[in-house]
Nucleic acid binder design. Structure first.
Lengths: 214, 214
DNA sequence: TGATGTGAATAACTTCACAGCG
DNA sequence: CGCTGTGAAGTTATTCACATCA
Protein backbone atom coordinates (compact mmCIF):
# COMPACT_ATOMS: atom_id res chain seq x y z
CA UNK A 1 0.00 0.00 0.00
CA UNK A 2 1.29 3.40 -0.91
CA UNK A 3 1.91 4.79 2.51
CA UNK A 4 2.16 8.43 1.44
CA UNK A 5 -1.01 8.51 -0.59
CA UNK A 6 -3.56 7.23 1.92
CA UNK A 7 -4.82 10.77 1.98
CA UNK A 8 -3.49 14.15 0.99
CA UNK A 9 -0.90 15.46 3.42
CA UNK A 10 -1.48 18.96 4.77
CA UNK A 11 1.07 21.58 3.82
CA UNK A 12 1.55 22.52 7.41
CA UNK A 13 2.35 18.96 8.37
CA UNK A 14 5.60 19.18 6.45
CA UNK A 15 6.59 22.42 8.12
CA UNK A 16 5.87 20.90 11.49
CA UNK A 17 7.94 17.84 10.69
CA UNK A 18 10.90 20.19 10.36
CA UNK A 19 10.18 21.59 13.78
CA UNK A 20 9.88 18.14 15.32
CA UNK A 21 13.16 17.23 13.71
CA UNK A 22 14.91 20.21 15.21
CA UNK A 23 13.51 19.45 18.64
CA UNK A 24 14.46 15.78 18.34
CA UNK A 25 18.01 16.72 17.45
CA UNK A 26 18.19 18.88 20.51
CA UNK A 27 16.93 16.03 22.65
CA UNK A 28 19.41 13.72 20.99
CA UNK A 29 22.23 16.11 21.80
CA UNK A 30 21.06 15.93 25.41
CA UNK A 31 21.31 12.15 25.24
CA UNK A 32 17.58 11.62 25.55
CA UNK A 33 16.80 8.19 24.10
CA UNK A 34 13.03 7.95 24.30
CA UNK A 35 10.46 10.69 24.40
CA UNK A 36 6.67 11.07 24.43
CA UNK A 37 4.62 13.20 22.07
CA UNK A 38 3.81 15.45 25.01
CA UNK A 39 7.46 16.17 25.70
CA UNK A 40 8.36 16.81 22.09
CA UNK A 41 5.59 19.31 21.53
CA UNK A 42 5.73 21.02 24.90
CA UNK A 43 7.85 23.92 23.70
CA UNK A 44 6.58 24.09 20.16
CA UNK A 45 3.05 25.46 20.63
CA UNK A 46 1.73 22.34 18.97
CA UNK A 47 -0.60 19.80 20.53
CA UNK A 48 0.55 16.24 21.04
CA UNK A 49 -2.43 14.96 19.03
CA UNK A 50 -1.30 17.11 16.13
CA UNK A 51 2.15 15.59 16.36
CA UNK A 52 0.80 12.06 16.34
CA UNK A 53 -1.60 12.85 13.53
CA UNK A 54 1.19 14.37 11.46
CA UNK A 55 3.28 11.24 11.83
CA UNK A 56 0.30 8.99 11.17
CA UNK A 57 0.19 10.19 7.57
CA UNK A 58 3.45 8.35 7.04
CA UNK A 59 3.17 5.28 9.25
CA UNK A 60 3.66 4.21 12.84
CA UNK A 61 6.81 5.31 14.56
CA UNK A 62 6.16 5.02 18.30
CA UNK A 63 5.70 2.42 20.99
CA UNK A 64 2.36 2.53 22.76
CA UNK A 65 2.72 3.11 26.44
CA UNK A 66 6.34 4.16 25.93
CA UNK A 67 6.92 6.89 23.36
CA UNK A 68 9.30 7.43 20.49
CA UNK A 69 12.91 6.39 20.05
CA UNK A 70 14.64 9.68 19.37
CA UNK A 71 17.28 8.41 16.99
CA UNK A 72 14.88 6.25 15.07
CA UNK A 73 12.39 9.08 14.67
CA UNK A 74 15.06 11.50 13.47
CA UNK A 75 16.02 9.10 10.72
CA UNK A 76 12.39 8.43 9.88
CA UNK A 77 11.51 12.10 9.50
CA UNK A 78 14.67 12.79 7.51
CA UNK A 79 13.66 10.02 5.19
CA UNK A 80 10.14 11.42 4.84
CA UNK A 81 11.47 14.86 4.01
CA UNK A 82 14.13 13.50 1.71
CA UNK A 83 16.93 15.09 3.69
CA UNK A 84 18.54 11.81 4.60
CA UNK A 85 20.78 12.20 1.56
CA UNK A 86 23.17 15.06 0.95
CA UNK A 87 21.49 17.90 -0.91
CA UNK A 88 23.67 20.21 -2.98
CA UNK A 89 22.66 23.83 -3.15
CA UNK A 90 23.85 26.89 -5.03
CA UNK A 91 23.47 30.50 -3.96
CA UNK A 92 22.69 33.02 -6.69
CA UNK A 93 23.58 36.57 -5.76
CA UNK A 94 26.29 37.18 -3.22
CA UNK A 95 25.26 40.53 -1.84
CA UNK A 96 25.10 40.86 1.90
CA UNK A 97 22.25 38.43 2.30
CA UNK A 98 23.64 35.83 -0.07
CA UNK A 99 27.01 36.01 1.62
CA UNK A 100 25.42 35.66 5.04
CA UNK A 101 23.54 32.58 3.87
CA UNK A 102 26.67 30.95 2.49
CA UNK A 103 28.20 31.20 5.94
CA UNK A 104 24.98 30.29 7.72
CA UNK A 105 25.87 28.20 10.76
CA UNK A 106 22.35 26.80 11.10
CA UNK A 107 23.12 24.02 8.63
CA UNK A 108 25.07 21.94 11.08
CA UNK A 109 23.00 18.80 11.67
CA UNK A 110 21.67 19.14 8.15
CA UNK A 111 22.74 17.50 4.93
CA UNK A 112 22.46 20.73 2.98
CA UNK A 113 25.71 21.70 1.32
CA UNK A 114 26.30 24.94 -0.47
CA UNK A 115 28.50 23.96 -3.37
CA UNK A 116 28.50 27.04 -5.57
CA UNK A 117 27.93 30.78 -5.52
CA UNK A 118 27.12 33.03 -8.46
CA UNK A 119 26.96 36.73 -9.16
CA UNK A 120 26.95 38.90 -12.25
CA UNK A 121 29.03 41.68 -10.72
CA UNK A 122 32.56 41.48 -12.19
CA UNK A 123 33.90 42.90 -8.93
CA UNK A 124 32.62 39.84 -7.10
CA UNK A 125 33.33 37.09 -9.63
CA UNK A 126 36.46 35.17 -8.70
CA UNK A 127 36.41 36.33 -5.10
CA UNK A 128 36.39 33.78 -2.34
CA UNK A 129 33.50 33.52 0.14
CA UNK A 130 33.93 30.91 2.82
CA UNK A 131 35.33 28.06 0.71
CA UNK A 132 33.70 29.03 -2.54
CA UNK A 133 34.96 30.97 -5.53
CA UNK A 134 32.18 33.20 -6.81
CA UNK A 135 31.26 32.15 -10.35
CA UNK A 136 29.85 34.21 -13.19
CA UNK A 137 26.04 34.09 -13.41
CA UNK A 138 26.45 33.69 -17.15
CA UNK A 139 27.80 30.20 -16.48
CA UNK A 140 24.93 29.15 -14.25
CA UNK A 141 23.57 26.64 -16.71
CA UNK A 142 26.88 24.92 -17.36
CA UNK A 143 28.04 24.89 -13.76
CA UNK A 144 24.81 23.76 -12.13
CA UNK A 145 24.60 20.86 -14.53
CA UNK A 146 28.21 19.93 -13.83
CA UNK A 147 27.67 20.14 -10.08
CA UNK A 148 24.35 18.28 -10.21
CA UNK A 149 22.58 20.99 -8.25
CA UNK A 150 18.80 20.69 -8.01
CA UNK A 151 18.06 23.43 -5.51
CA UNK A 152 19.16 27.05 -5.33
CA UNK A 153 18.89 29.92 -2.94
CA UNK A 154 18.02 33.09 -4.77
CA UNK A 155 19.25 36.31 -3.20
CA UNK A 156 19.40 38.77 -6.05
CA UNK A 157 17.80 42.22 -6.16
CA UNK A 158 14.08 42.37 -6.89
CA UNK A 159 14.44 43.60 -10.44
CA UNK A 160 16.63 40.65 -11.42
CA UNK A 161 14.72 37.87 -9.70
CA UNK A 162 12.23 36.98 -12.38
CA UNK A 163 14.74 36.79 -15.20
CA UNK A 164 17.09 34.67 -13.12
CA UNK A 165 14.32 32.29 -12.14
CA UNK A 166 13.48 31.82 -15.82
CA UNK A 167 17.09 30.92 -16.51
CA UNK A 168 17.14 28.55 -13.59
CA UNK A 169 14.02 26.75 -14.74
CA UNK A 170 15.63 26.31 -18.16
CA UNK A 171 18.71 24.67 -16.74
CA UNK A 172 16.85 22.02 -14.80
CA UNK A 173 16.60 23.57 -11.37
CA UNK A 174 13.54 22.20 -9.64
CA UNK A 175 13.45 24.10 -6.34
CA UNK A 176 14.12 27.70 -5.40
CA UNK A 177 14.31 29.29 -1.99
CA UNK A 178 13.63 32.88 -2.89
CA UNK A 179 14.81 35.71 -0.66
CA UNK A 180 14.18 38.39 -3.25
CA UNK A 181 11.32 40.66 -2.34
CA UNK A 182 9.20 39.61 -5.26
CA UNK A 183 6.92 36.70 -5.94
CA UNK A 184 8.66 34.91 -8.69
CA UNK A 185 6.62 33.66 -11.55
CA UNK A 186 5.46 30.21 -10.56
CA UNK A 187 5.98 27.73 -13.31
CA UNK A 188 4.22 24.53 -12.48
CA UNK A 189 7.40 22.48 -12.72
CA UNK A 190 9.20 24.63 -10.18
CA UNK A 191 8.94 24.41 -6.38
CA UNK A 192 9.32 27.85 -4.90
CA UNK A 193 9.43 28.93 -1.30
CA UNK A 194 9.42 32.65 -0.64
CA UNK A 195 11.06 34.17 2.40
CA UNK A 196 10.00 37.75 2.61
CA UNK A 197 11.21 39.86 5.48
CA UNK A 198 8.85 42.73 4.75
CA UNK A 199 5.83 40.40 4.71
CA UNK A 200 6.85 38.94 8.03
CA UNK A 201 7.22 42.38 9.55
CA UNK A 202 3.84 43.40 8.19
CA UNK A 203 2.28 40.32 9.69
CA UNK A 204 3.83 41.19 13.03
CA UNK A 205 2.70 44.79 12.74
CA UNK A 206 -0.86 43.59 12.26
CA UNK A 207 -0.79 41.21 15.19
CA UNK A 208 0.78 43.90 17.33
CA UNK A 209 -1.90 46.39 16.43
CA UNK A 210 -4.62 43.84 17.12
CA UNK A 211 -3.10 42.95 20.46
CA UNK A 212 -2.97 46.59 21.52
CA UNK A 213 -6.70 46.94 20.89
CA UNK A 214 -7.65 44.11 23.20
CA UNK B 1 -20.32 47.86 13.98
CA UNK B 2 -16.83 46.59 14.63
CA UNK B 3 -15.68 45.97 11.11
CA UNK B 4 -12.78 43.73 12.03
CA UNK B 5 -14.74 41.42 14.27
CA UNK B 6 -17.59 40.39 11.97
CA UNK B 7 -15.88 37.07 11.85
CA UNK B 8 -12.42 35.82 12.65
CA UNK B 9 -9.87 36.73 10.03
CA UNK B 10 -7.83 33.85 8.62
CA UNK B 11 -4.13 33.91 9.37
CA UNK B 12 -3.31 33.50 5.73
CA UNK B 13 -5.41 36.50 4.79
CA UNK B 14 -2.90 38.76 6.48
CA UNK B 15 0.02 37.21 4.67
CA UNK B 16 -1.78 37.58 1.39
CA UNK B 17 -2.55 41.24 2.10
CA UNK B 18 1.22 41.77 2.17
CA UNK B 19 1.53 40.16 -1.22
CA UNK B 20 -1.27 42.26 -2.65
CA UNK B 21 0.39 45.32 -1.28
CA UNK B 22 3.66 44.50 -2.96
CA UNK B 23 1.96 43.86 -6.26
CA UNK B 24 -0.05 47.07 -5.97
CA UNK B 25 3.12 49.06 -5.35
CA UNK B 26 4.64 47.56 -8.46
CA UNK B 27 1.57 48.54 -10.44
CA UNK B 28 1.68 51.99 -8.92
CA UNK B 29 5.30 52.36 -9.99
CA UNK B 30 4.14 51.49 -13.50
CA UNK B 31 1.58 54.27 -13.27
CA UNK B 32 -1.37 51.92 -13.30
CA UNK B 33 -4.31 53.75 -11.74
CA UNK B 34 -7.08 51.19 -11.65
CA UNK B 35 -6.85 47.43 -11.61
CA UNK B 36 -9.14 44.42 -11.39
CA UNK B 37 -8.86 41.56 -8.93
CA UNK B 38 -7.97 39.31 -11.85
CA UNK B 39 -5.01 41.45 -12.83
CA UNK B 40 -3.69 41.80 -9.29
CA UNK B 41 -3.74 38.10 -8.56
CA UNK B 42 -2.62 36.90 -11.96
CA UNK B 43 1.02 36.49 -10.99
CA UNK B 44 0.49 35.59 -7.35
CA UNK B 45 -0.95 32.08 -7.61
CA UNK B 46 -4.02 33.30 -5.79
CA UNK B 47 -7.56 33.29 -7.13
CA UNK B 48 -9.37 36.56 -7.65
CA UNK B 49 -12.24 35.35 -5.41
CA UNK B 50 -9.73 34.81 -2.65
CA UNK B 51 -8.48 38.35 -3.10
CA UNK B 52 -11.97 39.82 -2.91
CA UNK B 53 -12.88 37.65 0.05
CA UNK B 54 -9.73 38.70 1.88
CA UNK B 55 -10.58 42.36 1.42
CA UNK B 56 -14.22 41.78 2.32
CA UNK B 57 -13.21 41.02 5.90
CA UNK B 58 -12.26 44.66 6.22
CA UNK B 59 -14.82 46.47 4.11
CA UNK B 60 -15.48 47.43 0.50
CA UNK B 61 -12.64 48.90 -1.47
CA UNK B 62 -13.51 48.47 -5.12
CA UNK B 63 -15.92 49.79 -7.74
CA UNK B 64 -18.22 47.23 -9.30
CA UNK B 65 -17.73 46.97 -13.01
CA UNK B 66 -14.46 48.88 -12.75
CA UNK B 67 -11.95 47.52 -10.27
CA UNK B 68 -9.76 48.99 -7.57
CA UNK B 69 -8.03 52.34 -7.38
CA UNK B 70 -4.41 51.35 -6.89
CA UNK B 71 -3.36 54.23 -4.67
CA UNK B 72 -6.46 54.07 -2.55
CA UNK B 73 -6.10 50.34 -2.03
CA UNK B 74 -2.44 50.64 -1.07
CA UNK B 75 -3.35 53.09 1.66
CA UNK B 76 -6.27 50.96 2.77
CA UNK B 77 -4.18 47.81 3.15
CA UNK B 78 -1.39 49.70 4.90
CA UNK B 79 -3.95 50.96 7.35
CA UNK B 80 -5.31 47.46 7.91
CA UNK B 81 -1.84 46.10 8.56
CA UNK B 82 -0.88 49.05 10.72
CA UNK B 83 2.07 49.91 8.51
CA UNK B 84 0.74 53.31 7.56
CA UNK B 85 2.74 54.76 10.42
CA UNK B 86 6.50 54.54 10.82
CA UNK B 87 7.53 51.44 12.72
CA UNK B 88 10.83 51.50 14.59
CA UNK B 89 12.79 48.28 14.72
CA UNK B 90 15.96 47.11 16.45
CA UNK B 91 18.23 44.32 15.30
CA UNK B 92 19.71 42.11 18.02
CA UNK B 93 22.85 40.30 16.94
CA UNK B 94 24.99 41.79 14.20
CA UNK B 95 26.64 38.70 12.84
CA UNK B 96 26.53 38.24 9.09
CA UNK B 97 22.80 37.81 8.95
CA UNK B 98 22.00 40.69 11.31
CA UNK B 99 24.32 42.97 9.37
CA UNK B 100 22.75 41.94 6.08
CA UNK B 101 19.31 42.71 7.45
CA UNK B 102 20.34 46.15 8.65
CA UNK B 103 21.34 47.00 5.10
CA UNK B 104 18.36 45.21 3.57
CA UNK B 105 17.27 47.17 0.52
CA UNK B 106 13.82 45.56 0.47
CA UNK B 107 12.47 48.12 2.95
CA UNK B 108 12.13 50.87 0.39
CA UNK B 109 8.40 51.50 0.03
CA UNK B 110 7.94 50.43 3.62
CA UNK B 111 7.70 52.43 6.81
CA UNK B 112 9.99 50.10 8.70
CA UNK B 113 13.02 51.84 10.12
CA UNK B 114 15.91 50.09 11.78
CA UNK B 115 16.88 52.46 14.54
CA UNK B 116 19.26 50.41 16.68
CA UNK B 117 21.60 47.43 16.56
CA UNK B 118 22.87 45.40 19.50
CA UNK B 119 25.52 42.77 20.09
CA UNK B 120 27.27 41.36 23.12
CA UNK B 121 30.62 40.94 21.38
CA UNK B 122 33.00 43.69 22.62
CA UNK B 123 34.72 43.58 19.25
CA UNK B 124 31.49 44.70 17.59
CA UNK B 125 30.15 47.18 20.13
CA UNK B 126 30.80 50.75 19.04
CA UNK B 127 31.40 49.82 15.42
CA UNK B 128 29.33 51.44 12.75
CA UNK B 129 27.03 49.44 10.46
CA UNK B 130 25.26 51.47 7.83
CA UNK B 131 24.25 54.50 9.90
CA UNK B 132 24.06 52.74 13.24
CA UNK B 133 26.54 52.43 16.08
CA UNK B 134 26.34 48.91 17.50
CA UNK B 135 25.17 49.07 21.11
CA UNK B 136 25.90 46.74 23.98
CA UNK B 137 23.23 44.04 24.47
CA UNK B 138 23.49 44.72 28.18
CA UNK B 139 21.82 48.08 27.52
CA UNK B 140 18.94 46.64 25.52
CA UNK B 141 16.34 47.46 28.12
CA UNK B 142 17.39 51.06 28.60
CA UNK B 143 17.92 51.82 24.93
CA UNK B 144 14.79 50.19 23.55
CA UNK B 145 12.69 52.09 26.02
CA UNK B 146 14.44 55.32 25.13
CA UNK B 147 13.97 54.68 21.41
CA UNK B 148 10.36 53.53 21.80
CA UNK B 149 11.00 50.34 19.90
CA UNK B 150 8.19 47.77 19.93
CA UNK B 151 9.51 45.29 17.41
CA UNK B 152 12.88 43.59 17.07
CA UNK B 153 14.63 41.34 14.61
CA UNK B 154 16.47 38.60 16.42
CA UNK B 155 19.56 37.25 14.67
CA UNK B 156 21.63 35.76 17.46
CA UNK B 157 23.06 32.22 17.57
CA UNK B 158 20.69 29.44 18.54
CA UNK B 159 22.07 28.97 22.02
CA UNK B 160 21.47 32.61 22.93
CA UNK B 161 18.03 33.07 21.41
CA UNK B 162 15.86 31.95 24.29
CA UNK B 163 17.62 34.01 26.94
CA UNK B 164 17.54 37.10 24.75
CA UNK B 165 13.84 36.68 24.04
CA UNK B 166 13.17 36.52 27.77
CA UNK B 167 15.03 39.78 28.23
CA UNK B 168 13.13 41.36 25.39
CA UNK B 169 9.78 40.36 26.81
CA UNK B 170 10.78 41.95 30.10
CA UNK B 171 11.60 45.27 28.51
CA UNK B 172 8.27 45.66 26.80
CA UNK B 173 9.00 44.32 23.36
CA UNK B 174 5.81 42.96 21.85
CA UNK B 175 6.92 41.50 18.55
CA UNK B 176 9.93 39.48 17.45
CA UNK B 177 10.98 38.42 14.00
CA UNK B 178 13.20 35.50 14.84
CA UNK B 179 15.91 34.33 12.47
CA UNK B 180 17.61 32.12 15.03
CA UNK B 181 17.24 28.46 14.25
CA UNK B 182 15.24 27.72 17.33
CA UNK B 183 11.60 28.06 18.24
CA UNK B 184 11.68 30.66 20.92
CA UNK B 185 9.54 30.09 23.93
CA UNK B 186 6.18 31.60 23.12
CA UNK B 187 4.93 33.76 25.89
CA UNK B 188 1.34 34.67 25.27
CA UNK B 189 2.03 38.41 25.35
CA UNK B 190 4.65 38.15 22.64
CA UNK B 191 4.07 38.01 18.89
CA UNK B 192 6.72 35.87 17.30
CA UNK B 193 7.35 35.10 13.67
CA UNK B 194 10.02 32.53 12.91
CA UNK B 195 12.03 32.57 9.72
CA UNK B 196 13.90 29.34 9.47
CA UNK B 197 16.07 28.69 6.46
CA UNK B 198 16.60 25.03 7.26
CA UNK B 199 12.85 24.43 7.57
CA UNK B 200 12.26 26.09 4.23
CA UNK B 201 14.90 23.96 2.58
CA UNK B 202 13.44 20.84 4.13
CA UNK B 203 10.03 21.79 2.83
CA UNK B 204 11.48 22.23 -0.62
CA UNK B 205 13.35 18.94 -0.38
CA UNK B 206 10.07 17.21 0.37
CA UNK B 207 8.19 18.81 -2.49
CA UNK B 208 11.07 18.06 -4.82
CA UNK B 209 11.10 14.42 -3.83
CA UNK B 210 7.34 14.18 -4.25
CA UNK B 211 7.49 15.80 -7.66
CA UNK B 212 10.17 13.37 -8.83
CA UNK B 213 7.91 10.44 -7.98
CA UNK B 214 5.07 11.63 -10.15
C1' DT C 1 -22.06 44.94 -19.32
C1' DG C 2 -18.36 43.80 -16.33
C1' DA C 3 -16.42 43.77 -12.21
C1' DT C 4 -17.16 43.57 -7.11
C1' DG C 5 -18.95 41.53 -2.75
C1' DT C 6 -20.81 37.69 -0.26
C1' DG C 7 -23.82 33.90 1.56
C1' DA C 8 -23.77 28.95 0.78
C1' DA C 9 -21.36 24.79 -0.42
C1' DT C 10 -17.25 22.48 -0.35
C1' DA C 11 -12.81 21.26 1.09
C1' DA C 12 -8.98 21.22 4.30
C1' DC C 13 -7.29 21.00 8.73
C1' DT C 14 -7.41 20.33 13.78
C1' DT C 15 -9.24 18.57 17.94
C1' DC C 16 -11.67 15.12 20.36
C1' DA C 17 -12.45 10.86 22.24
C1' DC C 18 -11.32 6.57 22.68
C1' DA C 19 -9.76 2.00 20.83
C1' DG C 20 -5.43 -0.52 20.55
C1' DC C 21 -1.42 -2.33 22.24
C1' DG C 22 3.14 -2.74 24.55
C1' DC D 1 -1.52 1.54 33.09
C1' DG D 2 0.25 4.82 29.80
C1' DC D 3 0.99 6.50 25.51
C1' DT D 4 0.25 5.86 20.68
C1' DG D 5 -2.72 5.86 16.59
C1' DT D 6 -6.97 7.16 14.32
C1' DG D 7 -11.88 7.50 12.83
C1' DA D 8 -15.37 10.95 13.82
C1' DA D 9 -16.70 15.50 15.06
C1' DG D 10 -15.84 20.08 14.96
C1' DT D 11 -13.60 24.09 13.17
C1' DT D 12 -11.54 26.98 9.85
C1' DA D 13 -10.52 28.35 5.17
C1' DT D 14 -11.40 28.30 0.22
C1' DT D 15 -14.22 28.02 -3.78
C1' DC D 16 -18.54 28.53 -6.04
C1' DA D 17 -22.34 30.87 -7.78
C1' DC D 18 -24.77 34.59 -8.20
C1' DA D 19 -26.88 38.99 -6.50
C1' DT D 20 -25.41 43.68 -6.76
C1' DC D 21 -24.35 47.88 -8.47
C1' DA D 22 -21.42 51.64 -11.16
Amino acid sequence: MNIEKKTEIPQETIRRLSLYLRMLRRLNAQDVKVVSSDKITKFLNISSEQFRKDLSYFGEFGCRGVGYNVNFLIRAIEKILGTDKICRIAVIGVGKLGTALIGYPGFTDFKFQIVAAFDNDPAKIGKKIENLIVLDSADVKKELKRLAVKMVILAVPAFAANAVSEDLAKCGIKAILNFSPININMRRELCVSNVDVACELEGLAYRLKKKMKE
